[in-house]
Amino acid sequence: MKAQEIIRSIESEQLKTDLPIIHVGDTVKVGVVIQEGGKERVQPYEGTVIAMRNGGINETITVRRIFQGVGVERVFLLHSPRVANIKVLRRGKARRAKLYYLRDRVGKATRLKQRFDRPL
């Protein structure tokens, strides 16, 4: 076996197959596994996907939301066991791959138009 095939076979054991199709601009709800006093529970985190990185097992999404007036961005490693589930709530219309311009906007200006041609 070639080196790349061996590495891919190691990665394929850990790749999730049930991930939804996510696009930049979508509003998603991510269930994050957190540990609290020896107990595990799933905490939801909701926001807009402003960036994606496709890297096989290293695939990530950056989710932005405004929490108590403060912008919060979290990067999720999609294939990590810490990400319990992902649900797409709304498909947004974005004309670029990275929506970093949303960081400079507040209030109504951060809205994205909804698109209906992609199924949820």
């Binding site: 080196a3 790349q4 061996i6 590495i7 190691i10 596994v33 490693l77 294939h79 990590s80």
Partner: peptide, 21 residues
């Protein structure tokens, strides 16, 4: 040396690893 990748441990942490034949 075959290359590098990452694996997840029991806690869900990503560990950078080098694969060696």
């Amino acid at each position: 040396k075959l290359g590098m990748t990452q694996v997840f441990d029991e806690a869900g942490k990503a560990i950078p690893v080098t694969v060696v034949q």
